[in-house]
Design a protein around this nucleic acid. Sequence first.
DNA 1: TGCCAGTTGGCACCAGCTGCCATTCGGCAA
DNA 2: TTGCCGAATGGCAGCTGGTGCCAACTGGCA
Lengths: 192, 192
Amino acid sequence: MSPSLREERKIRTSATIAAAALDLFAARGYAAVTVAEVAAAARVGERTLYRYFADKEDLLFAEDDGWRASLRAAIEQEPAGDPPFTVLRGAAATLARALEDRREEVRRHGEVIASAPALAARERAKHAAWEADLAEGLCVRGVAAGEARLLGRITVACFDEALTRWLAQDGPHRTLGAELDAAFAELAALAT
Amino acid sequence: MSPSLREERKIRTSATIAAAALDLFAARGYAAVTVAEVAAAARVGERTLYRYFADKEDLLFAEDDGWRASLRAAIEQEPAGDPPFTVLRGAAATLARALEDRREEVRRHGEVIASAPALAARERAKHAAWEADLAEGLCVRGVAAGEARLLGRITVACFDEALTRWLAQDGPHRTLGAELDAAFAELAALAT
DNA sequence: TGCCAGTTGGCACCAGCTGCCATTCGGCAA
DNA sequence: TTGCCGAATGGCAGCTGGTGCCAACTGGCA
């Protein structure tokens, strides 16, 4: 059941388009690049591009679906008896480990996103989806909905702050996992 | 120095357009209403509408600038010696008090926003701005940037959760202030 | 009264996005 | 090898969001 030639090509086409888009956006700015130019750079018709990506923004966010799935899987694999917040901290740590060796990629991506308000907004919407996934993962374990949502929000807040600090450092840097631990520790110290 | 006839008209025109937009969006859905229709309903040219509002989304978010200013003012008015998190909790409580008697308005607004992903994303971006304001307010008081950002994020997370719970109740309901206190209390209990 | 500055809205135009349709291409069976 | 089917492609027309430009209008003031 190896992927057929058709499927292979679809995957390759999608990756080509996304790569061309990121290159152009990084070089000239998101707003200054038209979808037609991205399509041309990827040697694809504009109409075809829109079959692979829902809209212009999606060129930068399509692959996030995969990470979202990883996050959901990470929650499920946490030990069954752990207290709720421990579960979410564990899931966040797993996601952090998956990002650990892709720092430059994440930074480059983040720079493009920060350059356009609409993209920053969508980035935030992604966090909302994460929060919902975390909350859902706790609800399945019997945690009350309100508490689950609050914990999801808190966890994403800490994760995002850890990501910010991780990317802000120049040269040698602490790991994302270390930043995440630090953020959670700070939270515990400050929340009381 | 009462407002001139010109200024009065501008304010009234802006309010008329925003009201027409909310009515149309609530009645027929955000996506199904064109900007031209909003302009026509407000008896204004489309080009004029775009002088009052930056884009279609802005029709729903323009007045948030005022609340953002209130939030900044609220931070400044917190006692000087208070610990950082106490300052932010106080500012959040002030904002909550300002919203307390506009529940139906907030709910109606929220329903329209929840109906379109792009609007939900922008709502989240608004929270990012709040977080930045809160962090800035702490930095001015000498708090380290990283800690200030983290506290800003946590505070907004609790506020947003409190807002969610406040709006979710039917019939008689607890106050937003009470929900906010509850969320902060839960945080303190769960974070350790 | 007449002028100035701010406000308005029509028009042209570009970019994002979609439905439709003809063409092309991979995969399979005769 | 050939021929067929369904999937993938891309061109085209068309709508909506958004902007620059310019001409007409209006309130305010000398």
